[in-house]
Design a protein around this nucleic acid. Sequence first.
RNA 1: UGCCCGGUGGUGUAAUGGUAGCACAGCAGAUUUUGAUUCUGCUUGUCUAGGUUCGAAUCCUAGCCGGGUAACCA
Length: 561
Amino acid sequence: MSEDEGASSAPLDFIRQRVADDVAAGKHGGRVQTRFPPEPNGYLHIGHAKSICLNFGIAAEFGGRCNLRFDDTNPLAEDTEYVESIKEDVRWLGFQWDGPEYYASDYFTALYEMAERLILAGKAYVCSLNVDQVRQYRGSWNSPGQDSPDRGRSIEENLDLFRRMKAGEFPDGMYTLRAKIDMASPNMNLRDPALYRIRHAHHHRTGDQWCIYPNYDFAHGQSDSLEGITHSICTLEFEDHRPLYEWFLEALEIHQPQQIEFARLNLTNTVMSKRRLLELVKTGRVSGWDDPRMPTICGLRRRGYSPQAIRQFCTSIGVTKFNSTTPMARLEEALRHDLNESAPRAMAVLEPLKVVIENLPAEVSETRSAANHPAKPEMGTREIVFGREIYIERADFMEEAPKSFFRLKPGGEVRLRFAYVIKCHEVVKDPQTGEIIELRCTYDPETSGGKTPDGRKVKGTIHWVSAATAVDAEVRLYENLLLVESLAEVAEGEDWKDQLNPGSLRVLQGCKVEPSLAGAAVGQNYQFERNGYFCLDARDSGAERLVFNRSVSLREASDKG
RNA sequence: UGCCCGGUGGUGUAAUGGUAGCACAGCAGAUUUUGAUUCUGCUUGUCUAGGUUCGAAUCCUAGCCGGGUAACCA
C-alpha cells in the first residue's frame, strides 16, 4: 500500500482512538480482533469497501487479526454465488482474512445450545403468537407492550417445544423462540425479541439439516464472541441493538466484544441499497452486477478502478457517526490521483476526423518516439508512426472558432503531440450534408518533435493517430447512474427508476487507437491523452474486438472554448 | 408521539478546555508539447440561547434541526 494510505501520522478516528485506548488499558490482554461480516445475499459495493478498509485496516495497524465471516442465518436470501463474489472482491481490494472464512452457519449447533441454556435459565420461551399478533402485543413507541400468553410457559414445556421445533414437527411460523426481557422497554429491541424462527428451507451450506434458524440479534453477537472478536464494528442502524447484543452475552456469560457503530457511506448520484442494486440488475437497466456504472466492487473493477484508489478514497473520507453524503467527484478524484501516477499514456481518437498532410508523400512514414509518462522517464518510450493520413478528434477542429479556442481552425496551426506543427488549408465537406469529412493540411518539417526553432508560439497541442496503423476500437463513456444527487429528493409514489440517467452509457464505435493498444491487457490502465483514463473491458473484449471503458475523464478547465 | 444517535466553510473531516487546520470543490495566477499534471495565492465555518471557566467547537442545561428505530430481514 502506498504512503498516502498510511495512518501513522494521521489523527485517529473515534473508533481507532477507542481501540488504542483499549489496547493501552490492556483490555482483552491488549489483543485486537475485528471482523467483516457480510450477508451473502448480494454483491459488495463501495459502502462495504469502507467497512472492509476499517476492519482490516484496524487489525493491521494494531497487530491484530480480522476475520471474514458470512452472516448467513437467512436461507431464503443467501447463495454461494454471493459468497464467491464477496471473497474475490475482498481479496482484490488487497486484504487477506486471517484463518479460513467463517460462517454464522458454522455455529448453528453452538447457537442452538445457547438457546437451550437461555430456556433453562428461564430467559427464553416458545411463543405461539403469529406475526400480526406479535406486532400487536409489542405495543408502540408511546405505549408499553403486553406479555405474550406463552410467556409463563414452564421451562420443561419450553424445552420440549423448542426441541420439537428443531425436530421439524411444526410448520413455518407456528412457533418462535423469544427472549424474556421487558415488554415495556423504551427500546423496542428489548420487547422480547425473537431468537429462532421455523423455516423449512434449504440452506446454501447446511442444506436441510436445520428447519429452525437464529435471527441476526441472536447470531451476530455470539458469533463475534465465539471468534474472540474484541471490537465489533457495524453501522449506525444497529446502535439500538447494542443493549440486546450485550444482554445475550451477559445472560450466557461468554466473552464480550465491544460493539461500535459508525455512519455508512452515502455517495451522490448513485444507488447503494442492495434492494435497488438488485432491481437494476433484474430489470436489465444495467448489464449485471459488474456493469461499469454500478457502485459495486466488481463494477468499479470493470470500470477500471484500482484497489489502491478505492482504499485511498476510503481512508480519505474518514470515519464518524455523522450521517454525511460524499460527492461522487471525490471518488473520481481518488482514481485520477492514483492513475495519474501509474497509468502509461497512449493516444486514441474517439471521434475521428481525417486529416491529409498534403506535403507528405503517401509512401513516406516516419517513426517518432513518444514518452509513456510525461513525468516518469523510467516508464520508457514507445514508437508511433506519422504518415500522410492521420485522424484527429472532431472536437479539436472548429470552422468558426472563438478566440479562446486554441486547437485547429482554418488557416491556423496546431501541434500534433510528439510530431509536427500542422496548418489547416482546406475543409472538405460532404456536398449533400455539409458535414466536414476531411481536413487538408501541411506540416512544417522544421518542427520535428513539436519544437518551434523559430520561436513562434503554437498554443494548442492535440493527440492523433496515423490512419495507416490505427486500430479500430469501441469505446464506452460513462456518466452517473442517477440524475439527482439523492433519492431522498424523489417524491412519494414516484418510481425512483425515473431518476436514472438515460445518458449514463454512451457507446462509440469506430474509434481509432494507436497500434500499441491492440496488445492491451485486462487490468492495465491507460491514460488516453486528453481523453481520460481507460481500460480494456474484461467482459466484452476479445481477440477480434477491442472494447475500452473510460474509467474517469481528465479534469477539464471550465473556460475551454 | 417514545427511545437512541448526531450537528465545525459549498462538501467532508481535524483540533482530546488554550492560535479553528486539512482535503475535495470553487476562484485567481505561474509553469506546461495533454486546456491534464505540478506549484502559488484567495474566498467561505463552530445550529441557537443560556451557564461553568482566566479561557468553550470541546463541559453542563434547554431549544432547534437531521438521522435511526415498532421483520419470524441483516
